[in-house]
Write a protein that binds this DNA or RNA. Sequence first.
RNA 1: GAGGGCGUAGCUCAGUAGGUUAGAGCGACAGUUUGUGGCACUGUAGGCCGUGGGUUCGAGACCCAUCGUUCUCC
Length: 379
Amino acid sequence: MAALTFELQTQSKTGSARAGKITTDHGVIETPIFMPVGTIGSIKAVTQQQLKKDINAQIILGNTYHLYLRPGLEVLEAAGGLHQFMGWDRPILTDSGGYQVFSLANNRKIKPEGVIFQSHIDGSKHLFSPEKVMDIQRTIGGDIIMAFDECPPFPSEYDYVKKSMDLTHVWLDKCVHQFDNTPDKYGYTQNLFPIVQGGIYEDLRKASCEYISSKNAVGNAIGGLSVGEPEQQLYDFTALCCENLPVQKPRYLMGVGTPWNILEAIDLGVDMFDCVMPTRNGRNGMIFTSQGVINIKNLKWAKDFSPLDPGLPNEMSQYYTKAYCRHLFMADEILGLQLASIQNLSFYLWLVGEARKQIQLGDYSSWKKNMVAQISQRL
RNA sequence: GAGGGCGUAGCUCAGUAGGUUAGAGCGACAGUUUGUGGCACUGUAGGCCGUGGGUUCGAGACCCAUCGUUCUCC
């Protein structure tokens, strides 16, 4: 069993988009790729079978903080890791809980040695140190595990972001040390990705990229974006990071984003994405399609008996109509959540697959421009 | 036939001793959601207060009539 490898296969002749192949002990990931988010060991409303057959997910996410609280490490270890526990034999990436430092800001305290979280379930307190976060992710058993970072909110003052970034770098050293001195638990190789921070300050971002690159990890992540900054800044700082991270390693833009965000970021050189948007927004009635964005609860769809997404080569997207899907939402039927989640994830995976094809054809940027205009329309 | 209750937003109802532009919940309509605690959050529209008279500076509220509805008794 071996550390993951990244083979850079094609560079688009326009822009910085590239197609590649990540090989892990649980199989191959063709990039650029979108990774569905399954925080608590479940892509909400979607079965593992559907993820494979309908959506063609190649890798999914889990979350350290949430899995640590439920079902807890004892159960995960007894099960033989998250793959065994949830019945998923393809790659898994676990986020470190760094984002929960941001999203659960009311329930935690940041200290030099780590973060004290107060459980949103029972109020109990837990210290997440970089070392402990590595140990937990060892037990969960993700193929790719993330360094423990602090994701500062937007906007934040320069001084705060600098201190936060320095802390993230100190934590990274501790993560690397702990990771290097602990064994793989389940017979396959785990891989640690460090995370760039630095907010929306150019010098900090560059410094962070340099520091992260110096660790010579098998892949690198860009964090701290899509936290409320204007869209142009998301692109500008993604570009800056891509320019300052190794070319021959996969780049993972964390938490992004809308379908058009993803197409733009691919053009800037990003290889991996994750986002709750297709699932969470899907559960609230926002349907992403190859024709544009639909609010399925809107009255205009009540008698629209066309397929949910005529442009997708996906059985489910053809089989069910918009009118039926709207009915399910208006009636609070669980099937509506399932259809929306499957449609949105199918579309996201189809989209990055198309992007990959276009990169291989050579002119990604032209295709992207037209596709962004099409899929960002509000129908 | 006699007596009583009730008629306020699409629905279920609040409306204090008569006092500014009559409220809520649900529903409808629309918007938000970016490394997921929370099928969540935000907003908008919609009422000659059953109808017609009257008392009063002022009536959803009080009086009379009338229509509808409902209950009890004969």
